[in-house]
Design a protein around this nucleic acid. Structure first.
Lengths: 217, 217
DNA sequence: ACACCGTACAATACAGTGTACGTTAGCGAA
DNA sequence: TTCGCTAACGTACACTGTATTGTACGGTGT
């Protein structure tokens, strides 16, 4: 005699929290509305009372995660502020790997996402950059963080499962040293640069250093 | 009396070419093995004679596309060579938008992909960078191009369909100027920096300029 | 010329997906 | 207590990738 689930067990925040939990435990690809509904103890269509589509839910989860990003510390010099924001975003993406795919797969929207943009743009404008340069720099920094960290996560997850790791090794081993001398020679270094704080900061510092050069001129 | 399709109508190259064509005409998301098989005039399972899985086919298509990338021009100074390679990759991604998702979604593998890495690494090593720096720079440049161009394509496709364009406008209009003063003030500039050669080159030049600074020191 | 056999393709099936549509029942308000 | 709103349900559809099993064709050896 299964009683019907009570009336107001669902709400957007609960759905978002449960969806996020599922994405992180079973992986972003494995996430489905049916699994989510099962976890919530409701039928698959109940989700549609609160979100128009799966993509709509994705947007909500993404915006929720963006809300966790700490604001830029004020008082520091602008290069340190920029560094802090970019590192913060990368850190958040590493803590919540699904964020990478949520950011890459859909255009930005949402209140919290706008707050993050406001923070970084504010730092750049306060530093004295003109409107055009601030906007360009913002886009450049954002896309760098997105690309670098998505790649890092991709490589990490690939190396985690034994099948992927074996595939990486065999593709590396199949490269003939005569045809690809540099790749083969730099294989150890390349393997070490597929992620990590140092690799990320290296690229970030290149950008900031290039930016300082244009700022002083 | 439909005669059975003849014996050797299929081969890997034909499958790859047809798959690529489908991805570009109907979009990467809409691509399915059944649609591909239909286009080839065979049953869905015929593909599995030549590729172990859909991902396997993805890898093959990606490697095929990477083969279209022109090699780095030799004779130029290294900054120009780096610029040429990065611009070439971006250009290729813009010409074949599915390449962005093929690159972002799976780890690298394949002969042609290795050839591209060999080219860029060779440029960097010839320029005098040590192994570590060459490897780091290679990863940085690659992830920047991937992130920036993926973002650019994403925005472009979003703006193409009227529904997405309307969504972008409404989210922009819904931002209160008091809460997000900088975003609202820079809205025109931000709209202009979501893509284009100038935006890409701006970030690329920041990287190269930062790189030149470390090279001379 | 003929039989043979490996294999290229076919047919069927399964477990899963997002979501459109129409129905029903729990709850707050009157 | 009764009513109406709407949150949650059930069913259904058109898909997906792919495991498994079947079949007939084409090249090869005699």
């Amino acid at each position: 005699m299964p009683t019907r689930t009570p009336r107001n067990t669902l709400n957007p925040d609960l759905i978002i929290a449960t969806a996020l939990e599922l994405m992180e435990t079973r992986g972003f690809e494995a996430f489905s509305l049916r699994a989510l509904a099962g976890e919530l103890g409701v039928g698959p269509m109940a989700i549609y009372t609160y979100f128009r589509s799966k993509d709509d839910l994705y947007d909500a989860v993404r915006d929720h995660l963006m809300g966790l990003l700490p604001p830029a510390p004020d008082g520091d010099a602008w290069p340190d502020q920029v560094r802090a924001v970019c590192r913060g975003l990368r850190r958040l993406m590493l803590q919540h790997p699904c964020l990478a795919q949520l950011l890459a797969g859909r255009p930005l929207s949402g209140h919290e996402t706008a707050r993050v943009a406001e923070g970084l743009l504010g730092v750049l404008r306060s530093a004295g950059f003109d409107k055009q340069t601030a906007a360009r720099t913002h886009t450049t920094l954002f896309t760098y963080v997105l690309g670098a960290t998505s790649w890092e996560i991709q490589m990490a997850t690939e190396q985690r499962d034994p099948k992927g790791l074996r595939r990486l090794r065999t593709t590396m081993a199949s490269l003939s040293p005569s045809e690809f001398p540099t790749v083969v020679e730099l294989a150890p270094e390349l393997a070490r640069t597929t992620g990590g704080d140092e690799q990320f900061d290296y690229g970030l510092d290149l950008l900031i250093s290039g930016l300082s050069a244009t700022a002083t001129s």
